[in-house]
Computed example of a mutant assay.
Amino acid sequence: MILLVLSTLFFLPWWTLFASGVDWPFPVFVTGTVVFACWLVSFPFLMARGHGRRHSDRAARIADSTLGMIWVLFTWSALGGLVHLLLIGLGTGGPDRARIIAAAVVVVSTGLLAWGHHEAMRVPRVKRLDVSLPRLGGGLDGTRVVVLADTHFGPIDRVDWSTRVAETVNALDADIVIHAGDIADGTPAQRREQSAPLGTIRARLAKVYVTGNHEYFGEAQGWLDRMAELGWEPLHNRHVVVERSGDALVLAGVDDVTAGSSGLPGHRANLQGALTGTDPDRPVLLVAHQPKYVRHAADADIDLQVSGHTHGGQIWPFNFLVRIDQPVVHGLSLHGARTQLYTSRGAGFWGPPFRVFAPSEISLLTLRSGDGPATAPRTADTTADGTPT
């Protein structure tokens, strides 16, 4: 199945660029075919070397970039093929039709990859959002919650990026800062320098963290310990209570839904354990890495769940595939009578260093006490100082 998928991903762009009636000179055809063949054959070996036991960051960088490039080429080759068929049906385009389509695929793909790499590597914009929680006491009205998710420190050294992200978060003057999981691809020892700036992040009331699925590809317990070392409160199926002006908010967190199959003792998503000892009259903000955990949150009448995981799809049109597995790709949504879910697109990227039509974000949620859930909240994308983008 893997070989079939890989062959399809590489075959369609090769066909569009070199064999679909483009009639290039023979040396061009041979060169293109050899390049694609070598690309296809080397890819699985680079993936195994980069993400297998050897953990070669150099191999991972090449393999991940290849995956992003071939996905974009595949997508726009497919769209180019549809345009080609439409032009044939309309009887337009002439003998150079195939070459024009091939050139357009190359130009569009190159442009999107260049732009997508810039989007992936830049410091995320700040997405500002008002969220109304009916049970929130007036003393906590206006509480500023910063959501950071999916930093994915990995094979590309992003120490400077991590430092600037921390500076951006601190400029938001948060009461609560949440890291919703997927800190890194690798172990705490491998990504120690990249994760170090997280220790500089400040919050008035609490800094909390839950594991994501990628922590369970490395050392989940090690990341819980590392975040505690950096001054964060790991919500490992537990909760903390924050108070201001006589009103309280429960901050609860659960392990990622994949934790139960990790084999690590004591690791599994356990909402009942996270809520043990809480006052049922107090509002609850639950941190769970994957949006699909919201069905459990809704059953428990949680007020607000905060998640990441989806990356907003990261590279269009992958968002449609994400939607098959998750109830929401990004933004605020209502589930059941009370439970709201906020899904962040995340700050970093997994694997391919590209973001196409799925911008990264750091989210600033301003909690408001009110009479009902905010199904159409006020939102804005800004820089850290509040300048609209």
Rank of each mutant, 00 (worst) to 15 (best):
W76T: 02
S77P: 01
L79V: 06
G80L: 02
G80F: 00
G80Q: 03
G81P: 00
L82A: 14
H84S: 04
H84R: 05
H84Y: 07
L85R: 03
L87K: 01
L87P: 01
I88N: 14
I88F: 03
I88D: 14
G91Y: 11
G91K: 04
T92R: 14
T92L: 14
G93Q: 13
G94D: 09
P95L: 12
R97A: 12
R97H: 10
R97G: 05
A98I: 05
A98N: 06
A98W: 15
R99M: 12
R99C: 07
R99L: 13
I101G: 05
A102V: 15
A102R: 06
A103C: 12
V105G: 06
V105F: 03
V107H: 07
V107Q: 12
V107A: 13
V107K: 09
V108F: 05
V108P: 04
V108K: 01
V108A: 07
S109Q: 08
L113W: 14
A114Q: 00
A114S: 02
W115C: 08
W115H: 07
G116V: 01
H118P: 00
E119R: 07
A120S: 08
M121G: 06
M121E: 10
P124Y: 06
V126I: 01
V126A: 09
K127L: 12
L129E: 12
L129P: 04
L129G: 04
L129V: 02
D130T: 01
V131T: 10
R135W: 01
L136C: 02
G137K: 02
G137E: 08
G137P: 02
G137L: 03
G138Y: 01
G142R: 07
G142L: 12
T143H: 06
V146P: 01
V146E: 04
V147Y: 04
V147Q: 06
L148H: 11
L148N: 12
A149W: 07
A149I: 14
D150L: 11
D150S: 11
F153R: 05
F153H: 11
I156P: 11
I156N: 14
I156Y: 15
D157P: 04
D157W: 15
D157A: 15
R158E: 15
V159F: 10
D160E: 14
D160H: 11
W161N: 10
S162F: 10
S162H: 09
S162I: 09
R164G: 13
R164A: 15
R164W: 13
V165F: 13
A166H: 15
A166V: 09
A166E: 11
V169Q: 13
V169L: 13
N170S: 14
N170I: 15
A171M: 10
D173N: 15
D173K: 14
D173W: 15
A174R: 00
D175A: 08
V177P: 05
V177W: 10
I178L: 07
I178K: 03
H179Y: 08
A180E: 02
A180D: 02
A180L: 06
A180F: 03
D182H: 05
I183E: 01
D185E: 14
G186M: 03
T187L: 07
R191P: 01
R191V: 09
R192D: 15
R192C: 08
